[in-house]
Structure formats: C-alpha cells, structure tokens
Design a protein around this nucleic acid. Sequence first.
RNA 1: CGGGGUGUAGCGCAGUUGGCUAGCGCGUCUGUUUUGGGAACAGAAGGUCGUGAGUUCGAGUCUCACCUCCCCGACCA
Length: 496
Amino acid sequence: MEKSKITKQSENFSEWYLDVVREAGLSENSEVRGCGIIKPYGFKIWELIKKFLSQEIEATGVENVYFPSLVPMENFEKEKNHVEGFSPELAVVTHGGGEKLEKPFAVRPTSEAAMYGAYARWIKSYRDLPLRLNQWNNVIRWEKRPRPFLRWSEFLWQEGHTVFETEEEAKKEMWQMLDIYAKVCENYLCLPVLKGRKSENEKFAGAVITSTIESMAKDGKSIQAGTSHYLGQNFSKVFGVKFLDRKGKEQFAHQNSWGASWRLVGSVIMGHGDDHGLRLPTPIAPIQIVILPIYRTDENLEELESAGQLSQKVSVMDFYINGLKVFENLQKNYRVKIDERMDLRPGFKFNEWELKGVPIRVEIGVKEVESKTAIIFRRDTMQRKIVQIENLEDEIKLAIEAHDKNLFLQALAFREQHTFRIENFSDFEIGVKKDIAGYFDVSWCEDPNCEKEIKEKTSAVSRVLPTKNENKLPKNSKCFHCGKPAKHDWIFARSY
RNA sequence: CGGGGUGUAGCGCAGUUGGCUAGCGCGUCUGUUUUGGGAACAGAAGGUCGUGAGUUCGAGUCUCACCUCCCCGACCA
C-alpha cells in the first residue's frame, strides 16, 4: 500500500493542513508572497458558502453595491483608532500612468474609509435611514505571516455597512447579522460556533463593540469565523454622516459594519478534516455524490454483455448508470460526478475522493449489477452499506442527512471535550502549552493590561465573552490571572 | 523587524578533498499487461544548478555581495 500523501493530524497539524489544501486541489501559492491561487475545487466551495451567505443577508433587506478598491490615503487618517489599526498592513499605490501620484492611494483593507464619504452625501434626513448596503469584494492586508484561507494578504469577503438613527436599532442589527453568520456556519457548514463579544484589546479598530463567532479547529485553536461591529458615532463624526431627526435637529448617525470571508473555507477544513483529508458538509460540497463504476476484466464485461440486456455500443456500466431512472433523478437533485476514468484502479479513486471530502460515494461493480444493488459509502464514518438499486435515492437522502448531522455533532463533541474550566493561572499556562489545547473558561477582570500580560506569558488571548454569560455573575469573583474582581466568564484560547 | 534555515527538472531531494557527459524518487508522456483499498514493466521528454562578481587550467561545489522562499517570534482590526 502506498503511503499517504498527507501528514497525520496528530503528528503535525500545521503540515496536515498545508498537505490537505495542496493535495485536495484547493489552492497553491502564487508568485506573490502571501497571495494564494484558488483552484476550481477550492473556489467552488467558497462560491457555495457565498451563495448561502448572500441569500441570508439579502433576505434581511440589504442591497449590494460596489465601491472602488483604491482609497485616498487621507481618508484613513480621519479615525484615530482605525488608522493605528490598519496603517501597518496597508498596500499603497504611489504611481499611476507612469508618474508619481500627488496623493497616494491605499488598496482597501476594508471599506469604511472608502464608503462613508458617499454615505455623508446620501444621508440628509431620518427618512434616508436605515441605509443597509453590502459589497462582495477583495481586500488587501499586508500580513506578516500568511496562511492559506485563514490569513492571506489578499482575500475575498463580504462587508456590510449599515446606518441607523439610534444606537438601539444599530445594536439590534449588529446581533441580527451575527446570528446570520452563526446560522450559516451551523446549518450549512455543520460547524458549531460560540457567539459573543470581543474584549477591548481584540475589537475592531474604530468599533465601540465587536461581536464574533468563534469556531474550534481540531488542534484546539480558535478561528474567528465572522464578525459584526457596532461602530457607534466614531465614523459618522469624522466622515460627517449626519441627518435631521424627526424634531428637525441634526444628529450623527449610528453605524455598523460586518464581514465574513473565505476564512470560512479554512474553518471547515480545520473543523471537520481527518487523516484521510477533507470532510465536506453536503451543502457546500462541489461534488455531493461520486458514482464509481468498478470494472473488472474485459472477460467479465463480455460475459455480462452476452448475458444481458445490452446494446452493442453501450458498456455495461453506461447501461446500468445512465440507463436507470434512479441515476437520472440523482443527477437532477444533487451535484453528482461519475468517475469514468478507465486507467485508474479503484483503490486510487477511493483515496482520491476521500481526500477531496466527497460526502457520499456510490460504488457499482459487476456484483452490484448482477444483484441489482449498489454500495453507499459515507465519508464521515468511512462505512459502506449495500442497498437495493430501487431504494438508492431514498437511502442516499438518509445518508446525507446522517452525514451532515454527524459532522456537526462530532465537531460539537470535540469542542466540549476541549473546553476546560480553569480557576488559576498556573493551570491555564500548563493547559495552553498542550499540543491539543482548547477553550479555557475563566473568570476575568476585563482589564486590557491584564490581557496583555496573559498574552505575553502564554500567547493566548480572550476570544469571546459568550452572550449567554453576558448577564451572569462570574463563577469566581476574582480574576484567574491578576486576582482583581472578575466581571464575567470569558473564553480564552490560542487562535488563528 | 529579530532569530534559524533554504535555493539543483513540475514536486521532494542527493551531489564526496573543486574534475570528465549533473543524478535519484515521485509526477508527466507513449506502449503493453492490469483494474473490488493508492498497479507492474519497457521506453521517452524534462536543467541558464537563485542572481551577479571573484578565485582557478577547470566551480553545482570555494570567496564576497545581493535576492528568494520557508520555519520560530513580534504583528494580525
């Protein structure tokens, strides 16, 4: 048996991830450091995720727009925290048309500074509100240490930018959009997420509140899978987004921004993948069912031909697969691929489709043709089941439901097994240094300096204050690190 | 930006104190036999040895400079 092309997760998770990304044909490095080439199979996964996100976002009444990718540098300098947060990672265009530009342009790392000048012109009255727009685009952030899908220097995402009369309305929408991200993750990506808000140190540069969904990778690290910010009046004040209210008084608007990127692809790989490769949830699988005809020798084919119902120009498998209505229906209802490659052995194909994470495989060999059956193989369990050919469609439907449910439950169980209540800092330090660490549930003081010290000592930071803990007293009245009064129970972890 | 590596065929690598026509594995292409868990054999194609300069009769190999990419940190709203 040939050795696996991918490193075992338990040996080196980071190498496992790079191996899967390469061998499953998702992406490869480009000539530009930190910018990846997304290959068709990887891009299709993103397009399917995008389809679900887009549906959910548009269902709330948000409209799509497009703003330019170049932003005047001076726009970034308006909001103090924003410029401090982003200037280290800006790409700047200094030349155009062969000449040095008088005023340089930044390539957007996010579009607050690109859009809000226009918002200021568009919004005059409370009647113009709420304004709720979204754009699907690319952004560039000059990352020091890129990683496929999770932190590339150029990435695709959507960014929503919305404007409201009141703080209350804005905050309500911030949580509404976060719920949509959580729903997409849980329903379509089969990934359980923790919802909540970020600490002072971890929030978006320029936001009043940053909310987040966090999913767990199989090495116990946390991935921020989507984020929704209440910007307050920080940007409306500097960009002049103001309106006359119902009493004729001028007010600065309350704004939100929210985004999710193809980081979600990385979250799926790291959240579901195993030593055989990818495991894709059916809704976002480019190929949901692969049908694998298994040929034997020409002799067998001839035997079958002479035995049966076969026109001379059609092979046995063509007859079986294309001639039966059950397959016709499958191809109507699912993304199906028939692997007709004659030059490859079945063992090779099994491994290849498992590596690519195809949820359901249907194997049809001579035995199945003779007995009018088919074999259904489930990627999540790696188990085979023999079914009658006339039941194939129903059986596949059940298998898909079970497959996706199982992916979700396995990920949830993994997260629960790797979430630890910690009462003191020495246990925390020991826990964080484990190979497969996880989430640390701690009572914390919420002091930014305390968080900085924790980060310096352990490289772990707060990830989220889960919404369910927001209105609860902490389990321990003292901070697990500094001993000052604790405010809430937070989740700390190492992260991507 | 700090520390450590690296650069030779599409990918992964070897290349001895400087020496003759630069090699191996995987992959690719052609053919034959195969085909129920990563097939075998035969043949073929594929190289400015990161770049530039230097030492030498002779440099993949030695010297200097530069560049690249990777890993570990810092940075990552």
